[in-house]
């Protein structure tokens, strides 16, 4: 085999490998949807976070605006403190916005939905969301419905 053809084949191999890496990165992993831009952090206090976990989505009107970056338990107030990292380009949420934990689909993953409030001040880094709705626990709801039925 001449030097020329060998080099062509090696070139094809390397190009194919890099193309495969590129396909995996862009099409298979979330690199194309993830934003590495700046974020600001706000905290919210929930009585029950259900199945929420770190990296769960934070959405506003269903659009992804950030992710849950930390979950801690406060044993003074017996509640969970969730830190939300919201992308810097969505920095115009009113300070009295409400955070609610919803479930995507009936049994899907849980996420935080931000419902904008009416105040003129915007949320900024380190703020705390004063209004937070806990996760709906399916078992509790079913239990409540059954209890209602029985009492009727």
């Amino acid at each position: 085999m001449t030097r020329h053809t060998l080099e062509i084949w090696v070139g094809v191999f390397v190009a194919a490998g890099i193309a495969a890496l590129f396909v995996l990165a862009m099409k298979v992993s979330n690199l194309s949807t993830v934003t590495t831009g700046d974020t600001y952090k706000v905290t919210a206090r929930f009585d029950n976070i259900g199945g929420l976990s770190i990296r769960s989505p934070v959405k506003a009107s269903g659009v992804l605006v950030g992710r849950v970056s930390n979950i801690a338990y406060d044993d003074k107030t017996y509640s969970a403190i969730v830190t939300l990292s919201i992308q810097q380009n969505f920095n115009q949420f009113p300070a009295d916005s409400r955070a609610s934990i919803y479930t995507a689909g009936l049994l899907g993953e849980q996420y935080i939905e931000l419902l904008p409030g009416a105040e003129d001040d915007y949320l900024k880094d380190g703020d705390r969301l004063l209004m937070a709705d806990s996760a709906m626990i399916l078992e509790q709801m079913i239990g409540r419905i059954i209890a209602d039925k029985i009492s009727e």
Binding site: F13, A16, G17, I18, A20, L21, V23, L24, V28
Partner: peptide, 13 residues
């Protein structure tokens, strides 16, 4: 050099 490229090709295919 080859191994990572081959593994990427394998996964993509």
């Amino acid at each position: 050099i080859s191994m990572p490229l081959l593994a990427a090709i394998f996964s993509a295919v």
